[in-house]
């Protein structure tokens, strides 16, 4: 399988480039396996907790795509930090087209 790269920017500005990512798993799983700060993934990818919230780099928005209705409703629950480029990373599966993707972790309160 192709080895892909994703770069997460943590809330304190630290850039973490993750290499050797396989196609298939969700970006939340990729982040959790690499210990990216601020991606908790409490609900395990059920689109029900918004602890895997990221901002997609503008230049990647089109390729990543927009949230569906269910995901949008969950993002609306954290409207205080929601932006036009918000996504829940558990709802995005890694695929070849996303090789090189950059995203920023949205802030979580208190963690």
């Amino acid at each position: 399988m192709a080895a892909l790269t994703v770069t997460f920017i943590e809330t304190d500005g630290t850039e973490r480039a993750i290499d050797n990512v396989d196609a298939g798993p969700s970006l939340m799983e990729v982040a959790r396996n690499s210990g990216i700060a601020g991606i908790m993934g409490d609900c395990g990818g059920a689109c029900s907790c918004a602890t895997c919230h990221v901002y997609i780099d503008e230049s990647w928005l089109e390729r990543v795509g927009a949230p569906d209705d269910i995901e949008y409703m969950m993002l609306d629950m954290v409207a205080d930090v929601q932006r036009d480029n918000s996504r829940l990373s558990c709802q995005i599966r890694m695929r070849e087209e996303l090789d090189g993707l950059r995203l920023t972790v949205a802030p979580l309160p208190g963690y």
Binding site: C43, C47, M77, V78, D80
Partner: peptide, 24 residues
């Protein structure tokens, strides 16, 4: 409330309620 989804009626972390979508 802009942050209503931060409420903790379902707990949080790895033990966060598994039935939360059904309950909602």
């Amino acid at each position: 409330r802009p942050n209503v989804g931060r409420q903790v009626a379902f707990g949080g972390g790895v033990h966060r309620c598994i039935g939360l979508a059904l309950a909602r």
